[in-house]
Write a protein that binds this DNA or RNA. Structure first.
Lengths: 216, 216
DNA sequence: AAAATATTACTGACCAGTCAGTTATTAGTT
DNA sequence: AACTAATAACTGACTGGTCAGTAATATTTT
């Protein structure tokens, strides 16, 4: 055995790549275990570093979690807001696009576990709850409210209680995310999100239609 | 100081009353903290006993939790099932009663925290998830499905995708429960459940109405 | 006195966050 | 181009605190 062949180094310096890899690993483990139950040792192992390295890039567990939300959720919200701002067609089409976007970009990705996470830990980690409330929920609600206002202003939707209706729109999406995280494994058939979204949009069409049938 | 006056005993034997008191205390603490984060020491303190006493009545934390669900949720499900079995009037009225029942009996009581709890811990405590799924979710879904089938059979509802529609009915109720447990404290105004239920029922009326207007 | 009920003190396992030390990389020197 | 600091990146053992469950002991009731 030649002993002068330099073995591959035990580790490499990869200052640029680490944060992304750590956040990515954290999303997976947080999603599986929840915030409190996640061991940073596991996150580190999955990211291929040691626990100490985590603390070189993130001051503590909470900030790591915030970084996960920023990376996994906020870009989608940005996209949704741009979509509404540039919308020209009927408001219901905007709604349709938004729900479909949520179903594909959030529900089908690992980010779908985040709502469960936040709901679960809100009581014990109020800072996290406030962060998520301010950065995600408020914005998402405002976005949907704007779509409803637009539709009512253009005579496409009948006048509705905006706040309640926003919640009615969000609820099945949220519930789907929670379902997948918590109960799907207990059933023989997975939740058919496509079918649920179709039924939801059908219900919304009937709910929002002006009294005398669509005005268009 | 007379020393022969028998002081009040430091504790009394109250074999019958303990379980209920412990379960009651557990409901409160589990609701505030979640399952994993709840310290049995706190439950004991709130029930006015010591930690050891808990273990005289419940073999472990999981069984204590199951007892909480049995006491706080199942009686309401029983009531709901009896209600449907004895229903004579229009199916929509049954739906209305069920949702109102949920809003008053679950949402407004401490039991409203249970859904959050189960969703939060399902991943880490699969036995709890299975228990809740089998004892609560399955039954609740079947109940609502039965109402829909009844309405369709009587020509009161248009034909709908039953599974999806059940989820659409449940979702806003569930979301309300989660909201109250997790985010209500962060907002200035509390969630107006009455208004939400009204909007939901209004939406459902439009969604379920047969095409040519109500047939009655 | 014996049985039943309750308390108190303890054990063992767990984990976020810390830090002294190690290894890879870069810059400087010959 | 080879050798040598100097520095940045990384590691992993350790600490301090927590808590479910258990064992030993005490009090109440019959």
């Amino acid at each position: 055995m030649p002993e002068d062949v330099p073995a591959a180094p035990r580790w490499r310096r990869r200052k640029e790549a680490r944060p992304r890899e750590i956040v990515d690993a954290a999303l997976t483990v947080f999603g599986e275990r929840g915030f409190a139950a996640t061991r940073l040792e596991d996150v580190a192992a999955r990211a291929g570093v040691s626990k100490g390295t985590l603390y070189l890039y993130f001051p503590n567990k909470e900030e790591l979690f915030k970084a996960v939300v920023r990376e996994a959720i906020l870009p989608n919200l940005d996209m949704a807001e741009r979509l509404l701002a540039g919308a020209l067609g009927p408001s219901f089409a905007v709604l349709e696009t938004l729900l479909t976007l949520f179903a594909t970009r959030i529900l089908k990705s690992r980010a779908g576990a985040i709502p469960k996470l936040v709901i679960a830990e809100a009581g014990n980690f109020p800072d996290l709850a406030r962060f998520y409330h301010d950065e995600v929920i408020r914005r998402a609600f405002a976005l949907l409210a704007a779509v409803l206002e637009r539709g009512m202003a253009r005579g496409e939707f009948r006048p509705v209680d905006v706040d309640s209706t926003v919640r009615l729109i969000v609820a099945p999406m949220l519930m789907s995310a929670l379902w997948r995280s918590s109960f799907e494994a207990l059933e023989d058939r997975p939740l058919d999100v496509r079918r649920l979204v179709a039924a939801h949009l059908d219900a919304l069409r009937r709910t929002l239609a002006p009294e005398g049938g669509p005005s268009s």
